[in-house]
Simulated assay, not measured.
Amino acid sequence: MLSQRLLGDRLCLQLLPRAAYSARDPAQWHTLGVTLERQQGVHAIDSDRRVDFDTLPGVLAHTPVGVEVFSESDSGGEYLLLRLDEQFARQHLPSVNHRVQSLGQSQALGWARTLRRLMLDPQPDGLALEHAALQLVGQASVQSDYRTPPKAFTRVLDQIAEQFHLPLSLEQLAATYGHNELRFLRDFTRTIGLTPHAYLIEVRLQAARRMIEQTDLPLANIALDAGFAHQSHMGSAFRKHLAMTPSQYRSRF
């Protein structure tokens, strides 16, 4: 886990890696969280009643102090967490007494991905981190009600998770969704906050990161196994989203 304290310790920024976990958050801070990867597991929100969850990328969750969250997952998923002290939260967050989360927060997801890139930098830019963190805080005021996505939508995500290494087309994904390409493109982008192509690149990027972290395979092989047409395409994705080359990323492990 990467962690940065900002604005004189009034904010604490954490980048949680994809890993199995079982955790109970005592909710001593106000928190904003953004899913960078799809996560599935079981959780209990301010109660002992555990329910299954399937949280999509681009979900923004606001949990106030006093709301306890238990969460457990066999695989986890990369997650950006921002904790705010009581005084700062009162000044900048909407007043809520329960956990609020909403789908398709493209702006929040964009700032979370920016924060990920900045945090992975060996020499993080403190000013840039504080700017991006404040922009993320600002997104809490534009949250909408959470909508459970239709099962056809989760079937599309399952297809991408299983076939990301293949050259998937919009026509194939729309067929799985059960609507025409234009309707699928609109619904997907609204629900996730990314276009299908951008989401596929993110899934491939995450797969490549895991292979780099866990294997000694040549980068050219990893690029192909992750679904990139060429090693240079993987390199472009790493530089754009992580601000480093695959070789630089490998040197961290």
Results as ranks from 00 to 15, higher is better:
A61Y: 02
Q248I: 03
R252G: 02
E37M: 15
D54S: 13
V156Q: 05
T176P: 01
R239W: 15
L157G: 05
R38W: 11
D158C: 03
R83D: 02
G178H: 08
P150I: 00
D74Q: 10
E181S: 08
A237D: 08
P124V: 12
R83M: 12
L60V: 07
Q101F: 14
G110F: 06
V65N: 00
A19D: 09
L182V: 14
P150Q: 00
S236Y: 13
D216W: 00
Q4Y: 01
L81Y: 02
L2D: 05
A27Y: 07
L56T: 04
R186Y: 12
L120Q: 06
H230V: 10
A161T: 07
L170K: 08
G104Y: 02
P149C: 07
L13S: 04
L129P: 01
Q214D: 14
L109C: 09
G58T: 13
E72A: 08
A133Y: 03
S247C: 04
H165K: 11
G41S: 10
P150L: 00
L6N: 06
A243I: 03
R155Y: 00
Q231E: 15
R155Q: 12
V203F: 10
L217D: 15
R209A: 11
L60W: 06
I201N: 10
E162W: 11
L115E: 04
A133L: 09
L118F: 02
T148E: 14
L224N: 02
R250V: 02
P246Y: 00
S102Q: 10
A133G: 04
F53R: 08
Q28P: 00
R190F: 12
R204F: 08
A223H: 08
Y249I: 03
Y146M: 03
Q28A: 11
L11Y: 01
V203K: 10
L13H: 00
D48H: 09
R209K: 15
T55E: 10
L224T: 07
T55I: 11
A220N: 11
N97M: 11
L15N: 00
G66V: 03
R116T: 06
H43F: 02
V69Q: 06
S106R: 13
M234D: 08
L170V: 12
G178D: 09
Q40T: 15
N180K: 05
H98S: 15
V42E: 14
V96T: 15
A108Y: 06
R10V: 02
Q123P: 00
Q135C: 13
D121A: 12
